[in-house]
Design a protein around this nucleic acid. Structure first.
Lengths: 196, 196
DNA sequence: TGAAAAAACTAATATGCGTTAGTTTTACAA
DNA sequence: TTGTAAAACTAACGCATATTAGTTTTTTCA
């Protein structure tokens, strides 16, 4: 009946993907049907196939868009001239910003990657592993230069990535804590702890 | 054909639940069918209904078993005579132990609660919110007594809970880091930071 | 304005799902 | 050894799913 709204800088496919991310976040990928997605767009389900190849393609696009975002950012940070500690802080802040500004897509990437089909699943996991390794290397470099305590670098990276990811639980309190306070507090917590 | 194995201290229902947790962890609740669960148990799907009421009952049991475990533990810790900092450390260590010792069920509870049906979903979320509030109160008490820096207590709790939850990613490295090192490093990181 | 392309529609198919009904087999206690 | 309860079985139902084929409507642009 209606036609999918086509805003200035986004194709119909982009609009579908964005709505899919919203839906997969709130209902999960497996439970959200193409009919529901179509209804949210004011369209019948088969019409979607004029723009996309399959349901799983939607998930692939979402997951790899997020992954590529992080990959690009760490490359930029790595090639800068900052100290290791400053680089690590920059990455933490970037994660927090991504989590808050691209909530739906990051959430879906974090939660629903398991439903990717091969070979995309393997590709996604390799990308993530490689990203984590970059962070481990950064922490270990920081330990070498005495900027960072001699901890197990992998545990530190795991702690940081998981803490930041937990911002998905934060939205319900958005009104009570300014975003900058949240970001600064979490960065300080992860770098300096909370004990006096 | 075969009969579900019935070990000494667990009923057939217990065996089904344990296997369901394994399956829901690896495949997700929505994607794992009763036929798959039955096959993993060496049985036909309808046979399961001699022991359980429905698929969603399995999820309920898993989620609330985990939730009750945490509730009981925090009650015990709250009523002890330790300092606030020691109480917080004890909770962190309990979370880590739960994550490592009851991996399947904790994972499923963390990931699949969204598929709970009402009124269980509301109940689960209320329980979790109340648990988080207990932790917030503990952190705020620690700030009052100058044990803890004057941070936003909710952000601190969010950081701690999320970091610990991230241990779900840890299993692939189990061989390389002893569990005690992992636990001690993460506790130290969350309490004292990593910067020199 | 009219032709071409884009994007919607309806109808239908094959598949897998949770679950029920009814029946048969197995296990245990008297 | 036999009777009873537990637990398995087969067959089937109704429903929702992703996707396809074929057709019609809408938009675009020369």
């Amino acid at each position: 009946m209606a036609k999918i709204f086509n805003s200035k800088n986004s194709t119909r496919k982009d609009v579908i993907i964005q709505k899919a991310a919203m839906l997969y976040k709130s209902k999960s990928y497996a439970t959200a049907s193409m009919r529901e997605l179509a209804e949210a767009l004011g369209v019948e389900a088969p019409s979607l196939y004029n723009h996309i190849g399959s349901k799983s393609e939607l998930l692939q696009i979402i997951c790899f868009k997020v992954a590529n975002n992080f990959i690009e950012q760490i490359k930029a940070i790595q090639s800068g001239g900052d100290t290791n500690a400053v680089k690590i802080e920059a990455i933490i802040r970037f994660h927090i910003k991504m989590m808050l500004d691209n909530f739906d897509e990051v959430y879906v990437s974090n939660h629903e990657w398991k439903h990717l089909k091969e070979p995309f699943l393997t590709d996604f996991l390799n990308t993530r592993r490689s990203y984590e390794q970059s962070l481990v290397n950064l922490v270990e470099a920081g330990i070498e230069t005495n900027e960072i305590k001699p901890v197990n670098a992998y545990v530190a990276v795991l702690t940081i990535l998981s803490a930041v990811r937990g911002l998905e639980f934060w939205q319900r309190n958005k009104k009570n804590i300014p975003q900058q306070v949240l970001e600064d507090d979490m960065v300080h917590h992860l770098l300096n702890g909370i004990l006096n």
